[in-house]
Design a protein around this nucleic acid. Sequence first.
DNA 1: CTTTAATTTTGAACATTGTTCATTTATTAC
DNA 2: GTAATAAATGAACAATGTTCAAAATTAAAG
Lengths: 206, 206
Amino acid sequence: MKNEPTKRELKKQELKENLLQAAKNRIKNNGLTSLRARDITTDAGCALGGLYTAYDDIDNLVLHVNSITLNALGTELKAIAANHKEPVERLIELARGYLKFACDNHNLWSALFDHKMAEGVAVPEWHLAEHAMLFEQIAMPLAQLNPELHEAELTTLTRSIFAAVHGIVSISLQDRFIAVPRKELDTQLTQFVEFLIKGFEASRQQ
Amino acid sequence: MKNEPTKRELKKQELKENLLQAAKNRIKNNGLTSLRARDITTDAGCALGGLYTAYDDIDNLVLHVNSITLNALGTELKAIAANHKEPVERLIELARGYLKFACDNHNLWSALFDHKMAEGVAVPEWHLAEHAMLFEQIAMPLAQLNPELHEAELTTLTRSIFAAVHGIVSISLQDRFIAVPRKELDTQLTQFVEFLIKGFEASRQQ
DNA sequence: CTTTAATTTTGAACATTGTTCATTTATTAC
DNA sequence: GTAATAAATGAACAATGTTCAAAATTAAAG
C-alpha cells in the first residue's frame, strides 16, 4: 500500500529537479566558479530562499550535479567496455573515452574534481560509491589480463592507471600548461597506455 | 650609478615581504580556500587597504606564494638530480621526491594547482616559465636514456610522465578517494615509474 | 463549502567577503 | 621649514551565501 504522492510532494520534487537542471546548465555553460545562488533560483523560477528548502546548501546541489555527470560518464564507459572485449584494446579505448568525455563536457567534468567540500565536511558515502564505478571498469580488463593478480595488487594497479590517465587529461586541459591539440593528445594517450601495459607485462613475465 | 633605495622603497619592499609571508603561512596552515584578506593584513601588521598598494589583488599575491613554492620544489628536485646520475634511477627518485614534497607541503602544493585565475585572465608569462623547470628535470634523464628521441617526442613524453606522476600523487592525497598510507604509496609510485620506463624501452627496441 | 491547521514559499535582512577611495599620515624635495 | 609627493588607513561599497519572520498555499476538519 504505497501512498499517492500529494500535490505538495509533487511540487517539491519539481522544484528540486528545476534547481538541479538550472545548476547543471550554469556549470556547463559558465563553469563551477561563476555559479551563483541567485542565478540558479532565477533560472529555476523560484525565490532565493527556495534553494534552501530543496537542498541543504549550494555544495549539496553541486554534489547532485556531479552525480549526474558521473553517471553520464559511467554510461559512456560501460558502452565502450561492451564494444571492446579484448582487454588491452578495452583499456586503451576506456582511456580515449575518458579523454573524449572530458573534452566534450569540459566544465561539468572539471566540476567533478574542482569542487571542494567545506572545511571538515566529508564527501557523503553515496557519492564516494559512485566514483567506484570508474575503477571497476579498469579493474575488469586488468584482472582478465592477469588472473593471478591478488585483490590488493589489482586495486592499487587500477588506481594508479586511473590516476595516470586522469593526470594526463587533466594537465592537458589546464591553461597553466601549453595546450595540446585534441587529436595529438588522443594519440599520445593511446601510446602512453600501450607503454604502461607493455611495462606491466614485461615485469610480470620476468 | 645605481640609486640608493629610499626609505619609501624599503618600507614598500618590507610590506610586500610581510604580506607574502603572512599569506604563505596562512595557506600552509589552513589551505587556500580559507585565505582571507583581513587575516593576511592583520598578520602582516598593516591596514586592509595595504594589501592593494603592494599587490594588484589576492590572486596576484597567491601567484607570488605559488612562485616561492615552485622554487622550493625546484630546489629539491635539482638536488635529487645531482645525487642520482643514472637516468632510470634519477627518474624514479624524482617521482619519489615529488611525492615527498607534496606530502610535506600539502597545502602549499595543493595551492599550486587549485588556484584559478579570474575569468578570462591568463596566468602571467613569468609564472608559466617557472613551471617549465619541472619538465626540464624530467626531460634531461629521458634524453639521456634515448638520445635519438626527436625534440617533439621528448616534449610530449616528458609531459605525459609528469602528468601521470602528478595524477597519482594528486588522487592519492584527495579525500574524494580512499587514502593510501604514505609508505605504500611510495612503493606503488616507484613500481609505476619502473613499468612506464620498461614499457617505453620495450616499444623502442622492437 | 468554510474554517482551521500545517506546510511551503518568499524576499528582505544579515554576515562575510574582496575591493575602492577620500582622508590622514609620512617621506622627499626644495 | 615648507611645499609637494607618495603611501597607509579604514570606512564604505558591492557581491555573495544563508536565515527566518511573514505571506501564500495546501491539506484536513467541520
